[in-house]
Amino acid sequence: MNTNSNTYTIIYASIVVIVVAFLLAFVSSALSDRIGKNVELDKKKQILSSLNADFSGKTDSEVADLYTATVKADLILNAAGEVLKENGGFAVEVKDENAKDLAERQLPLYVCEWNGETKYVLPLRGAGLWGPIWGYIALNADKNTVYGVYFSHESETPGLGAEITKDKFKSQFADKQIRRGDNLTYISVVKKGKESEDTDFVYAITGGTMTSNGVDAMIKDGMSQYANFLNQ
């Protein structure tokens, strides 16, 4: 058979494309349930991580149970600090909300009970050097002192920007205060030698300046949406 004729080439290309399309659609739909569950569980783990939860030796269902026991409510707030819904915050995609005007955004807030104390967990999302970065910040009941943080990223450089996910960076946030006097100053990520008197700060990652600046902006942008709630 002449495999170089136009008809053969066109038919061959069509068949290859159709077969591959069916194959991909089949694999994707067959696995979508499992993937969806993994994504959901991963989000629960991220929220619990901001409370410094330890998952070592825990099965997936134990982690899910821990989440149910810890998170008492996943509220949806608006920018004025009013509660729109008592639950459903977990399903809100922060990425989509950030594309809207501030007044229209649905702001998820996780009210947690951890070691007998109330903690507020706020989601954060921003831009690193190569792609999106996101995280969760847990505040004590005074809405001023940071209890813990969790950061993750899509494509920051391993060994440099990606170090924001390491304990060495995250542990700096504990016990920092987001206020100076009555003003919300949040927390700055600064280079050594550029420490500021006006705000609490943590040290940036050496060699990961762009990602560190992204974390700095993400904390300020993310938390300022909740300013009215934090000042209640």
Binding site: T3, T9, Y12, A13, V20, L23, L24, V27
Partner: peptide
Amino acid sequence: NTIPNRIRIIVQLVVVAALVTI
């Protein structure tokens, strides 16, 4: 033996991309 010579690179790419996605 079935791949038309003129679109062989495209076919190779489609196979690789499909495998990577899976």
